[in-house]
């Protein structure tokens, strides 16, 4: 059966497709901030710390996704505090993010192991299980998308100034530390959305590669976001199609597609270089 016939017939495939398209919105918008502000490593820390929250929620018999959301936001606040303190003090930001990364994962693995009864497949948290997305999950992704987009709309000019020249933004009266914490919280929410599509290990690929590809050709932040969202939609749909046709794991196929697309785009000579 061809992919398109299967898509008409199976709701799980429709859910997977919609999930990918919805996730691409937050991914393109917030991913662009992650790339220009160079906070991919912080996003990685948040993504991996999430497993701790998921494990605890699972152990307590709660929805893993609610645990993921809470732990993602806590990790975002901790990381923004650390980056503020490390500017003046003796803490090393990267060391603390690495520690958060590993400690979060360890907590998750221990709690999942100690949960009585049938153990969930740890692999589906790590590498995603887009084919298991329910209508409720889609609703949650939609709500989180709405929150992220609304935040970006309201604070767009302040965020642009924060990313371009934080010192100048501060001089114009913007509370940059507060705004930076909010931005990291939006990154955390986007990571939670993406985990359901590609899993937490591969989140960074989806969060950074479509935006990095878009950056090669965009001259404005808005253009970069629109292009990154369109690329994200292509990648998630294409990943689903390829994985269905060749019976491959969907999350990994999707992340790999984004990597290949970036490499190809980076190898094509750009206009910008021609100008110089």
């Amino acid at each position: 059966m061809s992919f398109f016939n299967a898509l008409l017939e199976h709701t799980f495939l429709q859910h997977a497709l919609f999930g990918g398209l919805l996730a691409s919105l937050a991914c393109g918008v917030i991913g662009s901030f992650v790339v220009v502000r160079r906070i991919g490593y912080m996003a990685g820390g948040i993504a991996h710390a999430i497993l701790g929250g998921m494990g605890i929620a699972y152990f307590l018999g709660q929805q893993p996704m609610s645990g993921a959301l809470i732990s993602a936001l806590i990790a975002a606040v901790i990381i923004s505090r650390v980056s503020r303190v490390s500017k003046h003090g003796h803490h090393q930001e990267d060391t603390i993010i690495s520690a958060l990364w590993a400690v979060g994962m360890s907590i998750g693995i221990i709690f999942i192991a100690k949960t009585p009864g049938y153990n969930v497949d740890l692999m589906s948290y790590l590498f995603g299980n887009v084919l298991m997305i329910s209508a409720n999950d889609l609703l949650l992704i939609g709500l989180l998308d709405g929150g992220v987009l609304l935040f970006t709309l309201i604070y767009f000019k302040q965020l642009l100034a924060l990313c371009y020249d934080p010192e100048f933004a501060g001089l114009r009266g913007i509370r940059i530390e507060w705004l930076n914490t909010l931005l990291l919280c939006m990154v955390a929410i986007t990571v939670v959305i993406l985990i359901q599509i590609v899993g937490l290990i591969l989140v960074i690929a989806m969060l950074t590669l479509p935006a990095a590809t878009a950056r090669l050709h965009a001259t404005t932040m808005l253009g970069m976001m629109i292009l990154a969202t369109a690329l994200g939609m292509m990648i998630t749909s294409g990943g689903l199609l390829i994985s269905y046709n060749y019976d491959l794991p969907t999350g990994a196929t999707t992340a790999l597609s984004s990597g290949i697309l970036y490499l190809v785009a980076a190898l094509i000579p750009q206009r910008r270089h021609a100008v110089k």
């Binding site: 220009v36 000019k157 642009l160 100034a161 990313c163 371009y164 020249d165 100048f168 933004a169 114009r172 950056r215 965009a218 001259t219 404005t220 932040m221 253009g223 970069m224």
Partner: peptide, 12 residues
């Protein structure tokens, strides 16, 4: 290499 135009920079 930041993606921003002259006008958007000045508006800041």
């Amino acid at each position: 290499a930041f993606p921003i135009t002259v006008l958007d920079t000045v508006l800041q």
